[in-house]
Design a protein around this nucleic acid. Structure first.
Lengths: 344, 344
DNA sequence: AATTAGCACTCTTGGGCTTAGAGTGCTAAT
DNA sequence: ATTAGCACTCTAAGCCCAAGAGTGCTAATT
């Protein structure tokens, strides 16, 4: 649907004013809009029309206008202008992300922190999903008489480790056998191949010796599963509670969503390419039907990796959110890419 | 302060009724108390006295009585009876804790979950503090051309690992040198010894070769620091938001306290032996001045290890809380003890 | 001396009413 | 097409009132 220029200007003014103040916006307030030199009566006519068309509503007859979800959607799609963050903000983001040393986990947790801080909302970040990740190498370290650690190194440079315990004394020779056999079979294979059936056939192929392996294999499977799964970091979740424009009950359900790891993961796993904004009922998760979700992905060496996201109320400063999200994604992607390249 | 038997009975009845219902308790309601065969007028006299003595208050003149913090304190110290949880509850706790395999971390996270669930409050658990833990063994695993992993095994069976990256190609021989030298120096030493000065003198003692070590040593220090620190798991934190008897603003500050790792750690590090209850203003943390904190410790092989805790409103079912906390602590201690003993 | 019945008193809660103010929609004039 | 003007609507806040709950006190009872 297309609408005339002046209507667009008025719609944008209502939305930006409303986002800034949280109060319904009336015709008189809008007269102060720069470049809009018409009377309040004219504005009222336009407002009435925008209301009929579904972009605005009134909380009650004698109140100003408030954007509807349709209104926000039109604004996000057609009216808002996204700029790169200010120099100082860019510097700040870089400093926070780059100061996190060698672990992608820390970078991502810092990314969530910095987004939450700069947008005043809850923020999420997910580690690169390991869907097309492969096993690079598997190593064993003995940690006790009955216990050892398996260390999985993936093709993307992630390292995951697991402990396992056996009913018998572990010997270095035994670990050597495990090591050689496993790496022969698995090196270069996709993580998804390392599943229950594989473990069974692997153990079976060793005959009697295979009976000693189940604990070890469970750990290998566990490590592969963990490496192929996503980890999600959340930051600033309690900020939602300070927003008067979200009902307490939906703030609670958002908080519950965000404190449940598996639900967070589910949310972050479906993030598509590019930057996307989901407003209110556009959200697939029922818990977010009163919120706005903005997502973007970061790219490692050119291919899509994990995602960054931000959860606010409908009254979110969308241009700023997109700007911060995209810039952070860029910095995160670069930084992790660099890390990984030096790990080869 | 000692008070007569009938007064005690009435005080206990008020508190238990109030905990159950959340409504101020009046003299008529109390007439139904078992074993209290007096008129409401008599009860009113007693109530008036308990109010003067500071155990009860009235929200307003024409309302029933509500316990004060002093009242709760007297109840907790003198009146309540703590019983072991029901058979089914005991079984349930055991099932949840024992189903968590080989990692103390998982056991503790499950402990927080189960406490939160059974008490309907937020719950915390901390890993054993490593204050008097010693280095058992340090091992190295090469994970890339420039990267390796250091694996620290402590005397308590904890395993911590860290990645490090060097500017040069790592060779197995080099790792062997690191391994032998470090273990010779550190095996059996307390973790607290592994600090900055140690790293410097260690590197210095190798002369030129020492220049290759800083990255490796930073990781060793990091692993030791992590192993000697406490990790805190939180569960059910959003439950606080559903309690109408806590103001939104203090619920928020409690939530913030609980979502900040370092503040959580600080809270859990000061937990004394045995089971303790801190009611309202008795709490050291200002964020908890409107809450009740119940803590207990678990013991591994007889010596105090980490802690379990529960955070609710003043209107917490204290007997149940203590009962669940103590039983969970017992199961957690046993289970971790078993784990550790088999790791030797 | 302790207990109890009775009653006046206090205070909250909720409903209904009123008023001030904000913002609208419509009409008639420009 | 725009605008001034005005009647209209609705909320928020203040006030009053009645009902109800629970008390504290007094005087009678055990």
């Amino acid at each position: 649907m297309n609408i005339a220029l002046r209507k667009q200007k008025i719609l944008a003014a209502v939305i930006e004013n409303y986002i800034a103040t949280g109060e319904p916006i009336g015709s008189k307030t809008l007269q102060n809009t720069e470049g809009l030199n018409v009377s309040s009566a004219t504005i009222r006519n336009e407002l009435a029309d925008l209301t009929v068309k579904g972009f605005l509503t009134q909380p009650h007859t004698s109140a100003g206008r408030v954007p509807t979800e349709t209104g926000y959607r039109y604004y996000v799609d057609n009216l808002m202008t996204v700029e790169e963050p200010q120099e100082r903000v860019r510097r700040y983001i870089e400093a926070r992300i780059n100061g996190e040393g060698d672990a992608p986990e820390h970078i991502l947790s810092a990314a969530a922190d910095v987004i939450s801080e700069l947008c005043g909302t809850a923020a999420l970040s997910s580690t690169p999903s390991g869907e097309d990740t492969r096993v690079h190498r598997i190593r064993f370290v003995q940690t006790g008489r009955y216990t050892s650690m398996v260390v999985l190194i993936t093709s993307t440079g992630m390292v995951k480790s697991r402990l396992f315990r056996c009913d018998f004394n572990i010997t270095p020779e035994m670990l050597n056998v495990f090591d050689r056999a496993l790496n022969e079979k698995l090196a270069g294979q996709p993580l998804s191949l390392v599943n229950q059936p594989f473990a069974q056939s692997f153990a079976a192929s060793f005959g009697e010796l295979g009976l000693l392996m189940p604990d070890m294999l469970i750990s290998v499977l566990g490590a592969c599963k963990e490496a192929s799964g996503t980890n999600v970091y959340a930051s600033g979740t309690t900020k939602i509670l300070y927003r008067s424009d979200m009902s307490l009950s939906s703030a609670r359900s958002v908080l519950e969503l965000l404190s449940d790891n598996s639900r967070r993961e589910k949310l972050m796993q479906t993030v598509p390419d590019g930057t996307n904004i989901y407003i209110g009922r556009e959200n697939a998760s029922p818990e977010l039907r009163q919120s706005a979700l903005a997502t973007t992905r970061y790219y490692i060496e050119g291919s899509p990796a994990g995602a960054l996201a931000l959860i606010g109320t409908l009254r979110t400063d969308y241009p700023n959110a997109v700007s911060i999200l995209e810039y952070t994604a860029k910095v995160v992607g670069e930084q992790i890419g660099e890390l990984i390249s030096t790990r080869r």
